[in-house]
Lab assay of single mutants.
Amino acid sequence: DKPLMPYMRYSRKVWDQVKASNPDLKLWEIGKIIGGMWRDLTDEEKQEYLNEYEAEKIEYNESMKAY
């Protein structure tokens, strides 16, 4: 599988927590909350997800070359 983009990594990490805090919200409403949370992160906080993505992207590209 292709590596997940940084925002999607963050979304997967916080989804269950946001859903548990807001059990009556629809999926798109939860997505909207998470989008706002992502925008509110500092560049340093986002960098963690970007670093994970870049590392996985290198691994993915290497595995595709071998294939």
Rank of each mutant, 00 (worst) to 15 (best):
Y53T: 09
I33R: 05
G31Y: 04
M64V: 10
S11F: 12
E62Y: 03
A66E: 12
M64Y: 09
E62H: 08
V14N: 00
I58C: 14
N61L: 09
L50A: 11
K46P: 01
K26A: 11
W15K: 04
T42Y: 02
D1K: 12
P23M: 02
Q47E: 08
M64Q: 12
D24Y: 09
K46V: 04
L27G: 15
L27D: 15
I30R: 02
K46S: 03
Y67P: 15
D16W: 06
M5I: 12
D1M: 03
S21M: 13
G36R: 12
L4T: 06
E59T: 12
I30P: 01
D24S: 12
K13Q: 10
P3V: 08
E48D: 09
L41F: 01
W15Q: 06
K26N: 15
L4P: 12
L41A: 05
Y49I: 03
R9V: 04
A55N: 11
M5G: 14
Y67W: 11
E59L: 11
I33T: 06
K32F: 03
L50H: 13
N51K: 13
M8C: 12
V14S: 00
M5Q: 11
K57Y: 07
E54Q: 08
Q17H: 10
G31D: 15
D40G: 10
G31I: 12
E45V: 06
A55Q: 13
I30M: 06
D40N: 14
N61P: 06
K2S: 05
I30C: 03
I33G: 02
N51P: 05
Y7V: 13
L27K: 15
Y7K: 12
S21E: 13
D40T: 10
M8P: 06
Y7S: 13
I34T: 01
V14A: 01
I30A: 03
Y49K: 03
Y49L: 04
T42K: 15
T42N: 11
L25V: 06
Y7G: 03
Q17K: 08
Y49G: 03
A66Q: 10
V18D: 00
N22Q: 05
Y60T: 14
L25A: 14
Y7H: 04
Y49C: 02
E48Q: 13
W38S: 04
E62P: 06
E54I: 07
R12C: 06
E56K: 04
N61F: 05
P23L: 01
I34Q: 02
P23A: 02
A20M: 09
M8A: 15
W15M: 09
R9E: 02
Y10P: 00
E62M: 07
R9C: 00
R12A: 11
V18F: 00
D1Q: 10
K2H: 06
Q47V: 06
D24I: 15
Y10D: 04
E48A: 10
S63W: 07
P6M: 03
Y49N: 06
Y10N: 01
L4H: 10
T42F: 03
N51F: 08
L41E: 01
G36I: 09
Q47D: 10
R9Q: 02
E54M: 06
S21Y: 05
W28E: 14
I33C: 03
M8F: 13
L25E: 01
E44P: 07
M37Y: 00
N22R: 09
K19H: 05
G35W: 14
D24T: 14
G31E: 15
P3L: 04
R12M: 10
M5F: 07
A55E: 13
Y67K: 01
D43E: 13
K65A: 14
R12N: 10
Q47K: 07
G35H: 14
S63Y: 08
D16H: 08
M64N: 10
W15R: 06
N61Y: 09
R12H: 07
Y10T: 01
G35T: 11
V18S: 00
S11I: 08
Y67L: 14
A66C: 06
L4R: 05
Y53L: 05
M37S: 01
D16F: 04
V18Y: 00
L27R: 14
V18I: 08
R12F: 03
G35L: 13
E62Q: 12
S63R: 14
L41H: 02
D24E: 12
S63Q: 14
A55F: 07
V18Q: 00
E56A: 06
E29K: 02
A55C: 08
N61A: 14
A66T: 12
E62V: 05
D43T: 09
M37E: 02
M37K: 06
R9A: 15
K65D: 09
M5V: 13
K46E: 02
T42W: 02
K57P: 07
N22K: 05
W38L: 00
